[in-house]
Amino acid sequence: MLWDWGYALEILPVLGQAAIITIEATLLGFAMAAVLGLVFAILRMLGPAVAWPVSMLIELVRSTPLLIQIFFLYFVLPKFGVTLDAFTAGVLALGLHYATYCAEVYRAGLENIPRGQWEASIALNLSLYTTFKDIILPQAIPPVVPPLGNYLVALFKETPLLSAIAVLELMQTAKILGSETFRYVEPITLVGALFLAMSLVSAALIRQVERALGRRFVR
């Protein structure tokens, strides 16, 4: 028989544990991407002296594969005296990689704010910090939540790359189970099913958030 239910049920708890690692990597990686992406987007607005190096970094990260960045952080940085455990290296790589994409999204949101909002902020003598915090970001971020949500799902689906540096996330766990028992059908299928289920759930959650923001913002 191709599918062994007994084996599938036996490995499900192990894969469930691994799914937690996958979710942790996703949430931590995306939190970093969301924050760092915003930092990149704002830095790029602060004049050419700051914008130029930031743009170079973004270009570098976007033009190289995520897998290479993961390897770089895990295997190359130790040569420069920075040793990271696999999970940390993986999360940092995911976060940095997706930060560059999020930066583009934020930029679109920031550029959509009319000049008049900046001018009113100057006329009211608001500091640059207050202008961003109270005036610009509350208007720029809600419209970009949907594209940011898409990147959250995209990042989630790229977490199996962390198996390459032996982070015990879903994919790596499935591979280990497979090599122990020489049965790959159940573990790999279950991993696919778990990803599908979690993707659908997060997409639904993102729609909820969108709707809530829409209610708050459009009047």
């Binding site: 008049g116 909002q117 001018e119 009113a120 003598n125 005036i135 509350p138 208007q139």
Partner: peptide, 17 residues
């Protein structure tokens, strides 16, 4: 110095949120 000056714009520029 700018604190002594206030301005009203043609297109209001109120904060919509």
């Amino acid at each position: 110095v700018r604190g002594k000056i206030g301005m009203v714009f043609q297109h209001f520029n109120l904060f919509p949120h």
